[in-house]
Design a protein around this nucleic acid. Structure first.
Length: 478
RNA sequence: CCGGGUGUAGCGCAGUUGGUAGCGCGCGUGGUUUGGGACCACGAUGCCGGGGGUUCAAGUCCCUCCACUCGGACCA
């Protein structure tokens, strides 16, 4: 039967990827627009995804000894200006509060675009001794950056995130923390969000404002563009010096502590959508899906169907699976389409024939496979099927990443590969800013990262021909 | 910020040389249905994005904001 889609139609991703993305965001009821540009409403279904990610990350942070705190939303201008590189990086996108009630403020207040300066100011008051270190803080909050172009999840003016901020007695410890948090992000991406990552260093050009080193995990989206999915920064003692944070070390000497910060935002939800989604809508990895299994009764008006479906739902729920049952009087077809749109990993159908045979039908969202499951085995089989979906999504994304990563030995070759295939281009690089600018200018790509996992692709820089220092990934970024 | 497109009912849209608002879907009620986006009947729904102007008269023409969207540039 020809599937005539009448309602909630979404644009095919091959036709217009950007429009497909926007359609999925709104039709799957993840977000709605507010009246303010770049300020999005996260609807319950979208927010539930964030809550699941939040819970996973928060557990890991706490496991590793971090504590949650809450900083003010407003930053006095004088505080923001203490670190030169930092203020230069963020000034263009700051929003300011200048009036309180009817009074003009003596000093304008920045609505936080990030909170390094607030943490530093606080620490300068409370850190005195090596015994006070390390400070392992994190906060869950929203920040504001006055972006020019905005899109749901990918680029909002206000967005939710977590920002971890830590202070250490030694550089070694701070560097270890920075790298460890990057591993935490990679772990969450790969093992919970089914998104394979490339871990590495940002170049000086792409570094966070005020950082000595910035580490990143880069993911590849369905359209072969790159999404920076989490970052971790090592600051050295730069901020500490500007904010006069000192401690007396074991050797009775005054020292500046070493600092890190790291963040992951709701942008990652955009990444999930663009990594796993298809032309029927959202596809969610089971581990973060608000609804893992939806039970839809078939011919529910028939004697006993609703009761049996309800009992099945209770059984599934009792097994610890996030489940939902749809007893509305919408048609079966409508329900199927609806939960596919919303990316529910597994749909369980139960109709009169199934009841007769003592089975139900489990349908995988990722590949459409229909699996007949004996009713007495659902609590054992459904978790297996959910795991299979999780793995299937990861494998598919990994294949996309691997199959669209290329090697080039010149800018021309890199440009050709990018134009023809998209994706990541690996080259050797001399480390000069000018070569980075040339690649951007001539091939339209920015450096994504200098991967930890290095390969020797040759002896010379693909851009200038001078001796190469490292292998680097290039790509078109979100 | 620059360039293109758009804004009329919850959603998708029509609305002629200016003449006072329409269609489909959805929504509500009742009924018939149900193994992939069902059907019948009745019903409700409009600051025509905001403000200003031209005109006897503006959804329609002009100015100006705002928002959405697609490209650039910039940034997570």
């Amino acid at each position: 039967m020809a599937k005539e889609k009448k309602v909630e139609q979404i644009t095919d991703m091959e036709v217009d990827f950007a429009q497909w993305f926007t359609d999925v965001c709104t039709k799957a009821e993840l977000v709605d627009y507010s009246g303010i540009k770049g300020c999005f409403i996260m609807r319950p279904y979208g927010y539930a995804i964030w809550e699941n990610i939040q819970q996973i990350l928060d557990g890991m942070f706490k496991r590793d000894g971090h504590e949650n705190v809450s900083m003010p939303m407003l930053i006095p201008e004088s505080l923001l200006q203490k670190e030169k590189d930092h203020v230069e990086g963020f000034a263009p996108e700051c929003a300011w509060v200048t009036v309180g009630g009817s009074e003009e403020l003596p000093e304008r207040l920045c609505i936080r675009p990030t909170s390094e300066t607030l943490f530093c100011d606080h620490w300068s008051h409370i850190v005195h001794s090596w015994r006070d270190l390390p400070m392992l803080y994190n906060q869950w909050c929203s920040v504001l950056r006055w972006e020019k172009t905005t899109r749901p999840f990918l680029r909002g003016r206000e967005f939710l995130w977590q920002e971890g901020h830590t202070l250490h007695a030694t550089e070694e410890e701070a560097r270890a923390e920075t790298l460890h948090q990057l591993e935490v992000y990679a772990d969450v991406c790969e093992n919970y969000l089914a998104m394979p990552v490339i871990k590495g260093n940002k170049t000086d050009k792409e570094k966070f404002a005020g950082a000595e080193n910035t580490y990143t995990i880069e993911c590849m989206m369905h359209d072969k563009k790159a999404l920076q999915s989490g970052t971790s920064h090592f600051f050295g003692d730069g901020f500490a010096r500007q904010f006069d944070i000192t401690f007396t070390d074991k050797d009775n000497k005054q020292k500046y502590p070493m600092q890190t910060s790291w963040g992951m935002s709701t942008r990652i939800i955009g990444g999930i959508i663009m990594t796993h989604g298809d032309n029927n809508g959202l596809v969610l990895p089971p581990r973060i899906a608000p609804i893992q299994v939806v039970v839809v009764p078939v011919a529910q008006h028939k004697e006993g169907v609703t009761e049996k479906a309800q009992a099945l739902f209770e059984t599934i729920k009792a097994a610890g699976i996030r489940a939902k049952i749809d007893l509305s009087d919408n048609s079966l077809g409508w329900k199927c389409a609806q939960y596919e749109m919303k990316g529910v990993p597994v749909r369980v159908e139960l109709g009169p024939k199934d009841i007769e045979n003592g089975v139900c039908m489990a349908v995988r969202r990722d590949n459409g496979e229909k699996i007949s499951v004996k009713l007495e085995e659902v609590t054992q089989r459904l978790p297996e099927i959910l795991d299979a979906v999780q793995q299937g999504l990861y494998d598919k994304a990994k294949r996309n990443l691997d199959e669209h990563t290329y090697v080039a030995h010149s800018i021309e070759e890199a440009k050709e590969l990018q134009e023809k295939n998209g994706g990541f281009i690996k080259t050797m690089w001399c480390g000069d800013l000018q070569c980075e600018l040339d690649m951007k200018e001539k091939a339209g790509m920015s450096s994504r990262c200098i991967p930890f996992k290095q390969e020797n692709l040759g002896e010379v820089c693909a851009c200038c021909g001078k001796p190469a220092k490292t292998m680097i990934y290039w790509g078109v970024a979100y």
